[in-house]
């Protein structure tokens, strides 16, 4: 970065146009949303929308279910990614590049296509049921679609790359020497992994967890296909309030709660990262 005096004008010229655009076209609609959430149909300003949201058993259950599934998905992603990311980070560069592009590929494919696969796998006449029936484990097809398990599977598949990528890039920065130093000082592989690799890659873990959790609690496609109206999450609830119930006030409340939840998680995990530095 070059230090130059008298640069304020240049900076304003560069930043101002886009800044104004973002304010008008992005921030303003959100402010309008916020105002909708505190102005019920009867008029006036009130927070009753939020009180109702947390008092009504339906929406409270949906909210808690959303958080619960988000946590489960994040946990599964961490467990699946950690050892695999370590293997990837220690690989020769060429093979790693190829394998990493396979991790990125799902990220670049639309969620509808990726979730559709789970209908084929978990459907009444799907792969799992056919196998269970032919092994005579069950006599009737088991219902998997519209269960929490299905949603968790779908979300995990969707967001796994967002955990693998930051973990691999954090682990790439751990020098081999450090691991060898730990081994030479008497640590076995597991100890080295837990006491050296895990703390040294915690930045990647926190970033990955932020992305996976916030992604899971706001995703729409997966809960819409695999949960449907029977098993609502926050996103599908928002859609239902807005399009089917047609209560814009209640929908705005759901939307604001979603924003606040994401912001809170981001803030919390960012603080966690700062504390470690």
């Amino acid at each position: 970065m070059i230090r130059r005096p008298n640069q304020t004008r240049t900076i304003i010229l560069l930043v101002a146009p886009a800044f104004v655009v973002v304010l008008v076209f992005f921030v303003l609609p959100l402010i309008f949303l916020l105002s909708q959430s505190v102005t019920p149909k009867e008029g006036g300003y009130t927070l009753t929308g939020y009180v109702d949201f947390f008092q009504s058993p339906v929406s409270r259950i949906v909210y808690l279910r959303t958080l619960k599934l988000g946590l489960i998905v994040t946990g599964i992603c961490v467990l699946m990614s950690y050892p695999a990311a370590f293997v990837l980070a220690r690989m020769p560069a060429r093979r790693r590049t190829f394998l990493m592009s396979l991790v990125i590929l799902p990220l670049m494919t639309n969620a509808v296509a990726r979730t559709f696969a789970w209908l084929i796998i978990l459907g009444r006449r799907g792969m799992v049921n056919q196998t269970l029936l032919s092994l005579e484990v069950v006599e009737e097809p088991v219902r998997f679609i519209f269960t929490e398990t299905a949603i968790v599977l779908g979300l995990t598949q969707l967001f796994l790359p967002l955990m693998v990528l930051p973990l691999v890039s954090a682990m790439e920065n751990i020098p081999d020497d450090v691991l060898e130093a730990a081994r030479s000082l008497g640590a076995n592989r597991l100890t080295t992994f837990l006491r050296i690799v895990v703390p040294m890659s915690s930045d990647g873990l926190v970033l990955g967890a932020t992305l996976v959790f916030t992604g899971s609690v706001t995703a729409f496609v997966t809960p819409a296909i695999l949960g449907g109206a029977r098993l609502l999450l926050m996103s599908t609830l928002l859609r239902q309030e807005a399009v089917i119930v047609f209560d814009q006030h209640a929908a705005a409340v759901v939307a604001v709660v979603m924003i606040l939840t994401t912001l809170a998680v981001n803030l919390l995990l960012r603080l966690l990262r700062v504390r470690q530095v």
Binding site: P29, L30, F32, A255, M258, T262
Partner: peptide, 14 residues
């Protein structure tokens, strides 16, 4: 940082 669904909803309204 803002969920996509919420962005879409807010823009629809506004």
């Amino acid at each position: 940082l803002v969920p996509g669904l919420v962005i879409g909803f807010a823009m629809l309204n506004f």
